[in-house]
Design a protein around this nucleic acid. Structure first.
Lengths: 228, 228
DNA sequence: GCATTTATGATAGTATTGCTATTATATTTG
DNA sequence: CAAATATAATAGCAATACTATCATAAATGC
């Protein structure tokens, strides 16, 4: 894969934290360990108390960085999309073909990370896994409008917008670029989950790359210009 | 829409309840009121205590019907898919064209119910709304395998299978019918949510039927046989 | 019509959760 | 070396999911 220069920081909307976790050891531990734990036990079972114990700190200290468990999740997901946007730029610069750029974007979206790489202290494989299974929980609830107002989903929306632009570059007349890309993103996440747990809902297995093939096929067949 | 004979019961896997809610007044009240409440305040804010108070009963009594809040949700979602399968049969019987059958199935999947109709005591509009926003919560957690074992998702899988069969009837060589249909189902749910709350992720608005059009277009372009 | 089963209500309780408040103690900074 | 800041320690609160116990009402069988 790509070697990202780890000096360039991934930006996350500052409304999602009370105190920047990058600014201290404790902040770093909170983020790193929460990724470990959410990945291991899932968002529902994950608690701030368990997190605090795991890093030899206290609940009160964690709450000085993140005002709620939900905000911590939003922070992680936002970080993920910010990083994905970064990867997208790397995967598409200096490439002229709109088709190739879009193909690469779809791979980025649909492939699970299977190497245990890190970006600074962030375990990317685990964060990727969290994004796949927990990200819908960041917007499928009654607080979505309130959180949207403070910009909690901007990184996600920016990413969708950028890939949608690639769709329009390929076919400027296609009517539903954003729907298509958000469908591919959320669909790919779910298909991975189904492959692991509800295989009757898929036609993929964990040792092929049918999910990537399916969505690539889906996108290009949808946006290709056909003469009538 | 169709007039369904309300005498034919919708079957739900009996592992999802301790005591059949159809067998008593209290059971009926539990199910009817939980649909009202989950629709109104969302699954997270919904509690068994609030439900019990709303129907002038007690928590302990509710727990005699459903062993957990999660099982109650699974019951509602299963009921929904059982009902959807029923609607699918009605929408496709006596129709010979595979294309028309599939078109009708996609409408069934992608359209939100906007008439306040009931099936016995079940408010279908509200249940439909719950299925759209809460159903991923029934399988996106660490207990999914355990619940799958007791058949919690059979109605969902059966429905997907039936629509996938229509895909294969249209094009027997298409490789990913189940992935396509589960993607359309979950994708349509999300697109409706995005339309209402995160419109930058869509190209639809609440007063058009772009979601239906988008997914119909997506499906047929994906499965159409083209000569090379 | 009476005994017995069954369904519900009333009440209480447990462990855990998300989150807050207060105070003490380190550590950094000026 | 004083003052500001960050963290830990401890306690607590209201709410949650869920359980246990017992009393009472209603339905059922004979």
């Amino acid at each position: 894969m790509f070697e990202l220069p780890t000096t360039i920081p991934i930006q996350v909307n500052s409304n999602l934290y009370l105190k920047d976790p990058n600014s201290s050891d404790l902040g770093v531990k909170i983020v790193a360990k929460s990724i470990d734990m959410i990945n291991a036990i899932g968002y529902e079972e994950f608690t701030i108390r368990k997190l605090a114990q795991a890093i030899n700190s206290t609940e009160a200290s964690v709450y000085r960085y993140f005002e709620s468990k939900q905000k911590l999740l939003l922070y992680l997901i936002s970080w993920y999309w910010s990083w994905m946007e970064y990867r997208l730029v790397f995967a598409t610069t200096n490439i002229s073909s709109a088709k190739v750029k879009l193909e690469r974007a779809i791979c980025l979206i649909t492939d699970k990370i299977d190497v245990d790489e890190k970006y600074n202290y962030i375990n990317l494989k685990k964060l990727n896994s969290i994004a796949f299974t927990e990200s819908t929980k960041s917007f499928l609830h009654k607080e979505v409008d309130k959180e949207n107002k403070i910009g909690a989903y901007s990184e996600y929306k920016n990413f969708v917008e950028k890939v949608s632009d690639l769709v329009l570059e390929f076919n400027p007349k296609y009517k539903y670029p954003n729907m298509l890309i958000s469908t591919v993103i959320e669909g790919a996440h779910l298909q991975h989950h189904f492959t692991d747990h509800l295989p009757r809902l898929t036609n993929a297995s964990s040792n092929d790359n049918h999910i990537q093939q399916f969505f690539t096929d889906l996108v290009f067949k949808s946006i290709i210009t056909t003469k009538k």
